[in-house]
Design a protein around this nucleic acid. Structure first.
Length: 595
DNA sequence: GTAGGGTTAG
């Protein structure tokens, strides 16, 4: 069967399309340099060749077959192949195949160039993405909104927010291209994901009065940002605005809102949204159920969560790996590792391949139960599989091993991480330091710390808190104090944990005046003393029987509505037993505390 | 055939 069709596309170049049977390449549209397209349909349908591309080798083989064909396949087929490769994350391979195309003088078009720019952006090389722009000019291909949207996404991928926004502004100002809803969406999404919810909302308002009116996606981005900020009232107001403007919310809109409400435990409102959705003929999907299940699990209601999972099945929605991971985490949080492991086996029975998160959840669960045998078993299991253990896996198992004192194994795992694993992050460094300090290995801790300082890899206050705490606990208060004083020079702001750690350190050494001075300094630096601070300092005075000063701080505590923790209470009882008159020194406290 | 939104782990 042969069909010939002649049509004239917008750019004015005529295309002639043939449909025929072509055994050697059964599903490829072929276009010669004269812009003649020949589409060959085989028994597997038009896309079958790309569905069969399972790995990089398949893609390369097919590409080389394609470039040798006469006449050449159409650029549509080349872009389909490139897209398939991008989906498999073979970004640099796309770039090099594009190079081969250029060397062979194969004609290119704007689609191909956008894909090449995207490949660079996905490799986090937006700079190389820009270097593709001259090819447009040389080839007489006009830039379009996709070209620049891809580059804007590239900037965001490298966290270059200002560059992204500047490019966006430049495009509009110099009339290089008219931003559309997608481009607004890209900017809004980039800003909202970095906490700039108000700017995102302003852009939506700008769109409302401008030429490009916001679509459902633009609203969804803002609603999700508001929900993530726990500003559910504002999010629901925006939902109502959408309804008024006859932009009907969709499942994504409702999922953002339901997730926000679940995280706040506002279950009645969740139910209201569920019934509202039904009125709009929008049905909950696997995301909706998973978020509800997650919310219930985080409140410890895992049985209810399992009930919802059964309900999910009744509604014809299949739980996916997210759902199972969430339920497993729920059981792990409650220490019910047997239940978590049944879910795990059940999932495998359903032919769902466990992923990294799944293993990490279980490893964390076993570590929390101090069952390092099982944790290590799972760690070894994942080490022999793909995907390989990631940073979270290593950090979890390291923490677990240190927790139970298996320092040798921890060192072994860390060495393995350095040689074949992911690059350690700040959490790894902090875990390692905490571990060394906990077991008195001060020299090892400090030599590791110094190495990191030289490499300037330690730029986080949480990390310094670990060092300061470790030094204080190992009787090295002076060194801790020196590092504390250095923080401001490095431009790091101490937080309440930093101060509390230093105050604890001073109290342990009986340097109560220094402790007191540090507490007063906290307020000056905009970091108010909290319940922990007061408990720590009161404990200090109690240990050194400075009853009248203790009384002063207790009064302040009472004024701020802070309570004693277990340690303070115990110390206080011991002091009162020895000397009952102390009771009169204690200010009017909650009667509960006084008993 | 190229660019966009919502769910999980340390």
């Amino acid at each position: 069967m042969r069909r010939i069709s002649l049509h004239r596309p917008r750019n004015g170049i005529p295309f002639i399309t043939f449909f025929d049977i072509y055994p050697s390449c059964s599903a490829i549209t072929i276009r010669g340099h004269s812009n003649t397209s020949i589409s060959v349909k085989g028994k597997f349908g038009v896309n079958s060749n790309f569905e069969n591309v399972k790995c990089l080798d398949d893609a390369l083989t097919l590409f080389h077959q394609m470039v040798r064909m006469k006449p050449l396949p159409s650029l549509v087929e080349f872009s389909k192949l490139y897209k398939t490769m991008l989906n498999m994350k073979h970004y640099s391979a796309v770039v090099s195949l594009f190079g081969e195309m250029q060397k062979s003088y194969i004609q290119i078009d704007g689609f191909i160039l956008s894909i090449v720019i995207n490949s660079y952006c996905l490799m986090r090389r937006v700079d190389c993405g820009f270097s593709v722009l001259p090819i447009y000019l040389k080839s007489g291909i006009p830039f379009n909104v996709v070209t620049f949207n891809t580059l804007i996404r590239g900037f965001f991928a490298e966290n270059k927010v200002k560059d992204a926004v500047n490019l966006f502004k430049k495009l509009a100002k110099e009339k290089i291209c008219e931003p559309n809803e997608v481009m607004y969406g890209t900017i809004m999404n980039g800003l909202s994901k970095r906490g700039h919810t108000q700017k995102t909302l302003s852009l939506l308002r700008l769109m409302e009065v401008g030429k490009t009116k916001p679509n459902i996606n633009n609203y969804n981005i803002v609603i999700d940002a508001l929900c993530k900020d726990r500003n559910l009232d504002a999010a629901i107001n925006l939902l109502n605005e959408m309804k008024q403007k006859v932009i009907p919310p969709d499942i994504v809109t409702y999922n953002s809102l339901i997730d926000g409400l679940c995280k706040l435990g506002q279950w009645e409102k969740v139910m209201t949204l569920f019934s509202e959705m039904r009125n709009f003929n929008i049905y909950p999907d696997v995301h909706t159920f998973t978020m509800v299940i997650d919310g219930l699990c985080k409140e410890g209601k895992v049985e209810d969560a399992e009930e919802v999972m059964r309900h999910t099945n009744e509604k014809g929605v299949e739980p996916n790996i997210f759902t199972y991971n969430v339920i497993m985490d729920g059981y792990c949080l409650r220490g019910q590792m047997d239940r978590a492991r049944s879910i795990f086996d059940f999932m495998i029975d359903k032919s769902i391949e466990p992923d990294n998160i799944c293993y990490n959840v279980l490893i964390n669960g076993y570590c929390k139960k101090k069952n390092l045998a099982e944790a290590m078993q799972m760690f070894c299991e994942i080490s022999q599989k793909r995907p390989k253990p990631n940073m979270v896996t290593y950090n979890t198992i390291l923490q677990g091993l240190f927790e139970v004192g298996r320092i040798g194994s921890a060192k072994q795992v860390f060495a393995e991480m350095l040689s074949t694993g992911p690059i350690p992050d700040l959490c790894t460094h902090t875990t390692l330091l905490n571990g060394y300090f906990k077991y008195g290995l001060v020299e090892e801790a400090m030599s590791y710390f110094n190495k990191l300082e030289i490499k300037r890899l330690s730029t986080d206050i949480g990390f310094y808190n670990a060092v300061i705490n470790g030094l204080c606990k190992n009787g090295e208060l002076d060194k801790a104090h020196t590092i504390f004083e250095k923080l401001s020079i490095m431009g790091l702001l101490p937080n309440s944990r930093t101060y509390n750690t230093m105050i604890t350190g001073f109290c342990l050494e009986g340097l109560l005046d220094e402790a007191k001075a540090m507490l007063r300094k906290m307020g000056d630096n905009g970091c108010l003393p909290n319940e922990v601070t007061y408990n720590v300092i009161v404990q200090g005075f109690l240990r050194y029987s400075k009853i009248s000063e203790m009384s002063t701080f207790m009064k302040e505590m009472a004024g701020k509505g802070f309570s004693f923790d277990a340690t303070t209470t115990e110390l206080l009882i011991n002091v009162i037993r020895k000397n009952p008159s102390v009771l009169d020194m204690i200010p009017h406290f909650h009667s509960e505390n006084k008993k």
